[in-house]
Design a protein around this nucleic acid. Structure first.
Lengths: 172, 172
DNA sequence: AGTGGTCACTTGCATCATGCTAGTCGCCGA
DNA sequence: TCGGCGACTAGCATGATGCAAGTGACCACT
C-alpha cells in the first residue's frame, strides 16, 4: 500500500517528516548542502539508482526544497540548488550530525564542524533564542499554537513536557 | 530490493538516517517524547498497522532508542521508554518542529514550544556552544574528524562550507 | 559522415517494507 | 464459562526501491 500521508496531521514534526521522511530525500539534500548540484554527481556520490534519484529530485523540486535551473542550453543541462526553504534545514542537519558523532561513531567522528573563517571547532547546540539557555529533555513543553484546531486545543489544554520521563518517573 | 544500508557510510548524518530514515521510526519516537509508552497507544495515535508498529518498535529497541520493560507480570504487559540515546534526539525534534512551523503551517503553528516552568514561549535555535553565535548557511564547514579514514581525509583536505551557495553564487 | 563519449534521464523487472484485515494468546472480571 | 482487553502475528496486495539496460541530445575527433 501507499505510504500513509502525514501532511494533514496537525503536527509540524509529522508534516516535515511527510515531506522528508523517506530513504533518500535527506541524503540528497545533505549532498546539496555540500555543494553538489548535478544529477550525475548525486548519483555517483550516493550510489543511488538513477530512477530513484529522478523521483526524489522531482519531489524535492515540487516541494520547494530545490530549484531546477538550466545552466547551459546546448546541450541542455540543469542543476539543482537549495532554495531558502532548503537552506532552512541546516539546523536539522546539524542535529543529525551531532547525534551521529555522539552515538554512531565508535572510532571517532568521521567529520566535525568548524568555523569556515577561523577554522576553530564548533559545537552546535540548541538553545532558546530569548534566554540563551540550552534545551534538554524536560526543558521544553508543547502547547496548542495559534493554528490549532479546537480538538487539538482540547487535547493540549495542559502543555506536554517533552522527554519528561527523564525527571518524573511516574506522573501517577 | 532491500533499502541500501547507509550504516557503513563515513558520515554521521548518513548513519543517523540509516537508523531513523524510514516512514515511521521518527513518528514513534515523537510520540515517545510526548509520553506514550504502550503498544496500543502508539497504534491509536499514529493509526499505523500493528504489524508495522511491531517491526518499528523492535528495531528501535535493538538500536537502543527505546527500552522494553515489563511493568506488570500478570497479565504480561510491556512498555517502551526512551533511553538516554533516544532522549538525545530532542534537538532533532526541535529542529523538525521549528521547520514545520515556519514552512508547513500556513494557518499558524498547530503547536508551539514553551518553558514548562514559566509557560513563556520558546524559540529554539542552533548556536555554537563556545561563542553563542547562531549558525546559519555559510557559518559552518565540515572537515575530517579524528575517526576519518585516509580516503575521507584526502577528500576533505579542504573544509566544505555548508550551504555556501547562499553567499557565493559561483566559485568559478 | 561516422564513431564514440558524456549527461540526464527512462524503462522493465524483481523484491521488500508497508497497508489492511483478521486471527491468536494470556489473562481478568462477571 | 463467556466476553473483553492488550499485544501482538499471519496473510495478502501494492508502491517504492534496486539493478541493468536503453534513449536522446549534444560535442569532439577522425
Amino acid at each position: 500500500m501507499q505510504r500513509k500521508s502525514l501532511a494533514q496531521v496537525e503536527c509540524s514534526i509529522a508534516r516535515t517528516l511527510d515531506q522528508l521522511g523517506d530513504a533518500w530525500s535527506l541524503m540528497v539534500l545533505r549532498d546539496a548542502f555540500l555543494g553538489v548540484r548535478r544529477f550525475q554527481d548525486f548519483e555517483r556520490r550516493l550510489t543511488v539508482a538513477p530512477s530513484t534519484l529522478t523521483r526524489r529530485l522531482e519531489a524535492l523540486v515540487d516541494q520547494g526544497f530545490l530549484s531546477k535551473q538550466r545552466y547551459e542550453d546546448r546541450p541542455p543541462r540543469d542543476e539543482y540548488a537549495l532554495t531558502p526553504k532548503g537552506l532552512d534545514l541546516l539546523p536539522l542537519f546539524l542535529a543529525l550530525a551531532v547525534f551521529g558523532n555522539r552515538w554512531l561513531a565508535p572510532d571517532g567522528a568521521p567529520m566535525e564542524c568548524v568555523d569556515p573563517k577561523t577554522g576553530r571547532k564548533l559545537e552546535p547546540a540548541v538553545i532558546d533564542r530569548r534566554t540563551g539557555r540550552e534545551l534538554g529533555p524536560g526543558d521544553v513543553a508543547l502547547r496548542a499554537g495559534p493554528g490549532a484546531s479546537p480538538e487539538l486545543k482540547h487535547a493540549l489544554r495542559e502543555p506536554v513536557v517533552l522527554g519528561a520521563q527523564a525527571g518524573l518517573e511516574c506522573a501517577s
